[in-house]
Amino acid sequence: MSIVRLLIGGATPRALALLAALLAFLVAAPAFLGPYALSVAILILYFAFVGQAWNIMMGFAGQLSLGHALYAGLGGYIAAGLFFHYGIGPWVGAFVAVAVAVLAGCIVGYLGFRFSLAGVYFALLTIAFSEFTRIAFDHWTWAGGSGGLFLKVQGGVTDILNLRGGATLFYYAILILAVGAFVLCRLLLESRLGRYWLAIREDAEAAQAVGVPVFRCKMIAIAISAALTALAGVWNAFYYNNLFPETAFAMGRSIEITLAPIIGGLGTLFGPIVGAVVLTGMGELFTDLTEHLKISGLKQIFYGLALLVIVIWRPAGVWPWLAKRLGVEERGR
C-alpha cells in the first residue's frame, strides 16, 4: 500500500488516467505499428530511458555530466565482448557491464567530488574520462580496436536468453527498462535520498551545513546513473549489433543523452520522456523533409534551429509548460 501511495501520491485522477492510457498504448503498440513507426518508438523509448538515467545526476543531484557515453560505451562493449568471445549471454553480461560502469562512475565521482570540482570543471572531467577511454578502446584488440566489434546477425531467430531477435523483442526490452527507470526515479525522488539530492542541487554548501552527507549522496547518484546508462549501452549494442569506439564513446553520444531531459524539463520525471518524443520526432521529420534534397548537413541545420527556438522559447523545458496545458500539474509542488 505504501509503495502504491509513494508512486501515485500527489497525482490528480486526470493525470493517472492519462498515464494509464499512455502505458496501455505503449504495451499494445507493436500490434498496430508498422516497422518504421516501431523503430521510431524504439528510439524514443531509448532516449527516454537513457535521459532518465542522466537526469538522476543533473536533474536531481545537480551534477553536470557531459561524458555519459563512457558508461553506455563500457556497458555495451563489455556485454558484447563477453558474448562475442565466450558466448556469455547479455543477461549475465549485463551484470558485469553494470559493475564495470558503476566502478568507472565511482572513480570519476570520487575524483571529481573529493576535489570538489563543480559545474563546468566537473563536466570537463567527465568529457576527459570519456575521451580517454575512447582512445584506449581504439587500441584495444580484445574489443576490436578502431575496426569495431560486430555481433552475428541471425535472421528470423528469436532467442530471448541471448537477446537475439526482431524489433518487437527490443521494443519490449527497452519499454521495460524505461518504465522501470521511471518507477525507480519516482521512488528515489520520494525517498530521503531524493530530498537530499534536491537540497544538494539547490545549494550544496547549505545542505552540508545542515548535515546532508553530500559526498555520499553524490556518489550514489553517479553510481545509479552509470548503472542505468550501462544497461542502455548493453541494449544498444545488441540492437545495432556493432560497436565502434569513435561512436560509442564520442562526445556527440554524450550530448545526445543530455538533450531529451534538458529539452523536456530538467529534474522532472516526464521531462526525459517528452524530450525524447520531441527530439526523435523532430529528427525523423527533418530526415523526411531533407531526404530528397540529398544535401548532407541540411537536416542538422533544421535540428540546430529547432534547438535554438526551444532553448529561447522554453528555457525550463517543454514539460512544465505542457503539464499546465494538460492540467496534470502535481499538487503541492
Partner: peptide
C-alpha cells in the same frame, strides 16, 4: 541563466555553424 541552458544555446549555435560549413 543556469549552465545547462547556456550549454544548450551554444550547442545549437555550434550545430548550425558546423553544418552550414558542411552544406
Amino acid at each position: 541563466r543556469p549552465e545547462h541552458q547556456q550549454f544548450l544555446l551554444l550547442l545549437a549555435i555550434a550545430i548550425l555553424l558546423v553544418n552550414v560549413c558542411l552544406v
